[in-house]
Design a protein around this nucleic acid. Structure first.
Lengths: 164, 164
DNA sequence: ATTGAAATGTTATATTATAACATTCATCTT
DNA sequence: AAGATGAATGTTATAATATAACATTTCAAT
């Protein structure tokens, strides 16, 4: 398959650093695009990255409420919509939850996720050749691909060991 | 990629036949497994196949209600749980809807779907080599895969032509 | 017939998401 | 700086999806 890389493995080491990096990247990306990473949107992104797991919209609401912000659901969903549109956040359909994208520079909004059923951690893969192979198959069916979502459910290494 | 096949293309020809075939297959599969395809479960499967599109749980409820059955949500969700456990039905996470599986004989519950954003039709692919390649990548991350869900969103041939 | 397990019925509620409209805020023009 | 404009957020209500908990029925095996 080739060209396979994996970041944000299960259990991130320098966590404060990776959150800061993600926010800095987001700032830069939005500046270049003239899109507005407002304080609210930035805070939502920060909460998602800080959790380092997929976070539900209502969990985000609670966390914002604890900060005295008390927004209603549409506020959070709109921030999530923006972040998804910018490719900064993925929705994990299998969990109805939202996850920081680990390759936000990329234009496409494809995602390839290893989702641990036990601990809830998610690793994002980047199998670019697989994406292209899928594109080829779709083209042979005259299907115009807009977005690919590969969600792989299972058990991560750490959880497997703990159960053994 | 190899070994690529596609069935239930966008626009099925002998529809009554394919529904009947799916039900007959389901009967046989459940008989072999000693699992009970009760009238309710069979009827739900039939409704899903007859639609030939992903169907929401509450749409199913409405259709059952029109037949005088009037079940509550848990009834339908339990039937869907059973059908999914038997691999007869897939949940389309991107749509919160349920679709007849076009290869129910297979043991795994993986799915590879081409989902048309405009007409709502879905084609199921069977890229077995892709499934295996993903398995290999996951293993290299010591991740134990239980289920793969590849959902490809876009526009099907028919809808593309109609817009052009 | 009896019993135990599976399936379904029933009631209530949890969870996720959006519609519709009001207000505030940032930016640009004059 | 004042005003206009559109984007962003606030607010209220509700839609859409899904499950918990417990009661009843049905089925199959004794």
């Amino acid at each position: 398959m080739g060209n396979i890389s994996q970041d944000t493995p299960f259990g991130c080491k320098s966590h404060r650093h990776c959150v800061a990096q993600a926010l800095a990247d987001a700032e830069q990306i939005c500046r270049l695009r003239n899109s507005r990473l407002t304080p609210l949107r930035k805070r939502v992104l920060e909460l998602i990255w800080s959790s380092h797991k997929p976070l539900g919209a209502y969990t985000l609401l609670e966390q914002l409420a604890q900060e005295g912000h008390k927004p209603a659901p549409p506020t959070v969903y709109r921030a999530l919509d923006f972040l998804q549109a910018q490719g900064l956040v993925h929705k994990v359909n299998a969990l109805n939850a939202y996850l920081g994208c680990s390759h936000p520079q990329s234009v496409d909004h494809n995602r390839q996720l290893l989702i641990c059923r036990l601990c809830g951690n998610v690793a994002e893969l980047h199998m670019s050749e697989a994406i292209q192979a899928i594109e080829v198959v779709a083209q042979s069916a005259s299907f115009h691909v807009e977005q690919q979502a590969l969600e792989i459910l299972g058990v991560c290494q750490q959880c497997s060991q703990q159960r053994a």
